[in-house]
């Protein structure tokens, strides 16, 4: 994987594989389960992505200590968290407040409105982002709920708490 080097030097690849940062180490299997569950529940999502299903989307939920890499390829799904100083090279980059991005995958926010208000930044392959946005928006219900459902009652409780916080803040991070 090609990575962009930021201020902090990246750890040696071998070392990083052996000793991933603890929070990301714990997060990785969770993200993996989430993306596979969403893919299993909503296979039609991939049809809308068309040629962009192999695109690499870097997702920056501002305020989180890491960025995420999504490759929505049904044959090789990738959803991974990476430290900010090892941000991967992507075909497109989507940046926004955590609660705004949650609103998008929750079906409660409008991507164009977030773009108009400058709460959402898009760079790179715009067509891939538009495809991803439209594909996610055609998913009935809430992807956030699907993901939370993976963890039963505690997962749903956490999502409900996040939604309440997001409502109070009016989006953003």
């Amino acid at each position: 994987m090609t990575e962009i080097s930021h201020d902090t030097p990246a750890p040696r690849p071998g070392l990083s594989r052996l000793l991933p940062p603890p929070p990301l180490f714990l997060l990785q299997p969770v993200l993996n389960r989430v993306v596979h569950r969403v893919a299993r529940l909503h296979p039609s999502l991939f049809d809308r992505l068309g040629p962009h299903r192999t695109a690499r989307f870097v997702i920056d939920a501002r305020g989180l200590p890491f960025v995420m890499l999504l490759v929505p390829d049904p044959d090789n799904l990738v959803f991974r968290a990476l430290p900010r100083n090892r941000e991967p090279q992507g075909d497109a980059r989507i940046a926004g407040g955590f609660f705004d991005l949650l609103g998008l995958v929750d079906g409660e926010s409008d991507g164009d409105a977030l773009f108009f208000s400058r709460d959402l930044d898009i760079t790179g392959n715009t067509e891939a982002v538009v495809c991803l946005r439209n594909a996610l928006d055609d998913v009935e219900g809430s992807i956030a709920e699907d993901a939370a459902g993976l963890f039963g009652a505690p997962g749903r409780a956490i999502l409900a708490a996040l939604r309440r916080t997001g409502d109070r803040r009016g989006g953003t991070s």
Partner: peptide
């Protein structure tokens, strides 16, 4: 405005 030909360039001062 075909999306494949739309590009946003973010500058260091926050402008796009």
């Amino acid at each position: 405005s075909p999306a494949a030909q739309v590009h946003y360039d973010k500058e260091a001062d926050g402008s796009v």
